[in-house]
């Protein structure tokens, strides 16, 4: 996983609440078995149906910070939603609320999801709509989002922040505790079912 410390890039305003994972990447794109190349599926239905959809507008091309409304990422557990955002070039998503599974997936995969209050999101929308070349900085080290006239702290637990800054793979971290896992297995209830 790529390390995340400080990222500065242009922002894309997505003025929708409840952006579900079926919108982020429709199910038809989930049939693939590869881990990369999902950028064509990102918001595929909205990109196809609406020429004015924000990702179709040239002034927002190359944006790397998505700024969305509340309850972003509701619905299915598909991690493809995170992969599609990353493959398209996004490094961070800012929203007032995220669905739990999407948030977990994003922080596992190195896509930084930043919780900011609705009024701050509104200010960021206004800024980047007035001037699409506006740059937004997402600073994980200082746990702060900065843009012209905006300096806002955000919360993220120390452990997740450390893991993202180090670019660490959870599995490798857990495998350091194999003895504890084996020990737990000796204490499991004897009647628990096995599949084989």
């Amino acid at each position: 996983m790529e390390k995340f410390t400080v990222h500065t890039g242009r922002a894309v305003p997505l003025r929708h609440s409840n952006v579900d994972t079926d919108q982020i990447i429709p199910a038809v794109y989930l049939k693939r078995v590869a881990r990369t190349g999902f950028e064509d599926g990102l918001f595929a239905a909205w990109r196809a149906a609406d020429p004015d959809f924000v990702l179709n507008r040239p002034e927002y091309a190359g944006g790397t910070v998505l700024v969305a409304g509340p309850d972003f990422g509701t619905g299915s557990s598909r991690e493809h939603a995170v992969w599609a955002l990353q493959d398209y070039g996004f490094k961070a998503v800012i929203a007032p609320r995220f669905a739990d599974i999407f948030r977990g997936n994003s922080l596992k995969g190195g896509l930084l999801t930043v919780l900011l209050p609705q009024d701050v999101v509104e200010r960021l929308w206004a800024l980047v709509e007035a001037d699409p070349s506006t740059e937004v900085t997402v600073d994980l080290v200082a746990r702060e989002v900065r843009a012209p006239g905006v300096t806002e702290p955000f919360e993220l637990d120390d452990y997740t922040r450390w893991r993202l800054m180090e670019g660490l793979d959870d599995i490798a971290l857990t495998l350091r505790h194999t003895d504890a896992i084996a020990d737990y297995e000796t204490r499991r209830k004897p009647w628990l079912p096995v599949t084989q």
């Binding site: 997936n105 599995i171 857990t174």
Partner: peptide
Amino acid sequence: FGIGTSQVEHVLATQTLPMT
């Protein structure tokens, strides 16, 4: 509870999940 593919891999490899 539902999990993402990274966590699927984690459970396959370790039969555990780090959870808050």
